[in-house]
Amino acid sequence: MTEKSENMPAPLSSSALFQEQVKRTFRSNKLTGLGAVIFLLVLLAAVFAPLLSTHDPLIQNILDRLEGPSAQFWMGTDAYGRDIYSRLLYGARISLTIGGVAILSAMVIGTAIGIIAGYYGGKVDDVIMQFNDILLAFPTLILGLIVVAMLGPSMQNMIIAISLTSIPGFARIARAPTIVVRERDFIEACRALGYRDWRIMVFHILPNVTSEVLVMASLWLATAIRTEASLSFIGLGVKPPAATWGGMIREGFENILDNPWLSIFPGLAILLVVFSLNLLGDGLRDAIDPKTRVD
């Protein structure tokens, strides 16, 4: 992967080592940096959507329906004459919010579950992880489908569904380093000092698992955005007329012969975000993976 540096650095703690690895990854692996930059741009576009958009994303203009890209409509218009470019910007808000909130909550809950299972071990671990593996066995989309079908389509239920599909993964990721750290003497020192279990888990184990969890979060955010688009595509997403990328692809699908741009642009947007997050996550994972680590 990266080249070995000539000057041997002083031994570093795992956190300092992680930061050092992250720096080196960005410097030596241009793709990781590219991923970070693209994702940041998309994020900014979503935040500043009202400033960047050229039209109101919801206003219909039947006279200008199904037009191709032009100076007035940069990416064309859909079947109701709405501006695709503006809808894409507002769609980014919904997609990123659903993905972000879902992954954030899944990360918190999953990490807690993983640390508890790993720290206590034995029966607690067995029961939690068996249940976890059952959830993990369902394909993400199917599980999301079941949940949304049960709760009904809405932004909040999408978040619940996607979060639920990501929790088992986070639990697994957090459990492994917990088991490693648990065996180290400083945890035994904590017990000898009479610390309660929650204190040991929150202040002594959690800081030692965060880097692994954060890396996976960046990868799984891409999955979450894709899942959101898929669910929207099959009509289980946020209700129209709100713009979502998956929903836009579906609407475009109905008129794909008249104006393929309708599906192409939201498709490209999803591709871009997923691609950038994968580049970023892969680079970060390489940074902490001992097998590819530069020592």
């Binding site: 703690s13 956190s15 003497d185 035994e188 000898a192 000092l193 009479g194 800081p207």
Partner: peptide
């Protein structure tokens, strides 16, 4: 009753400054 460990590389939390690690027991108790 306290304990001192054999391996000084495993007995300290790598993410905690020494001051914080020594203050914690005083505050906890």
């Amino acid at each position: 009753m306290q304990i001192i460990f054999q391996d000084p590389y495993s007995s300290l939390n790598p993410r905690k400054r020494i001051g914080a690690a020594l203050v914690e027991p005083l505050l906890v108790h």
